[in-house]
């Protein structure tokens, strides 16, 4: 079952987000979750002995893979990069203000 391995990757990311206390580790967990979801979409779209969805001018290609989830994932990847940059900017701001990446100490400081 290849879907289950993909979900194991997803749950590793969830474990990292829930359990770690460092902000950079939390960002790493979010990135891993995003990779797992993208991979799941492409796995659903795959067809047995399929070809890439690009037409050829000489020979007609019959068994193509599904182009719709690929288009969705293509936009989702770029959004994920922008979101990661936003998270990194917030983390650098927190480091500049409090001098640490540890979220428990930040909670203590806020009082």
């Amino acid at each position: 079952m290849i879907y289950l391995l993909c979900l194991v990757l997803f749950s590793l990311g969830v474990y990292c987000v829930l359990r770690k206390r460092n902000i950079i580790k939390i960002i790493v967990g979010i990135i891993i979750i995003e990779y797992a979801v993208n991979l799941f979409f492409i796995l659903v779209a795959y067809r047995e002995k399929g070809r890439a969805p690009i037409l050829s001018s000489q020979t007609p290609i019959l068994n193509m893979v599904d182009p719709l989830p690929q288009a969705l994932v293509l936009t989702a990847i770029v959004i994920g990069l922008a979101t990661t940059a936003l998270l990194a900017a917030i983390a650098m701001r927190i480091y500049e203000k409090y001098g640490t990446f540890d979220i428990t100490k930040i909670r203590e400081l806020r009082g």
């Binding site: 991979l39 492409i42 795959y46 969805p53 893979v65 293509l74 990847i77």
Partner: peptide
């Protein structure tokens, strides 16, 4: 993940994932 996209016949997504 980029190589996995290439095996799964999604070259557009593979290029974008590699660069991103």
């Amino acid at each position: 993940l980029s190589i996995a996209f290439l095996i799964l016949k999604a070259p557009d997504v593979a290029i974008t994932q590699l660069v991103v």
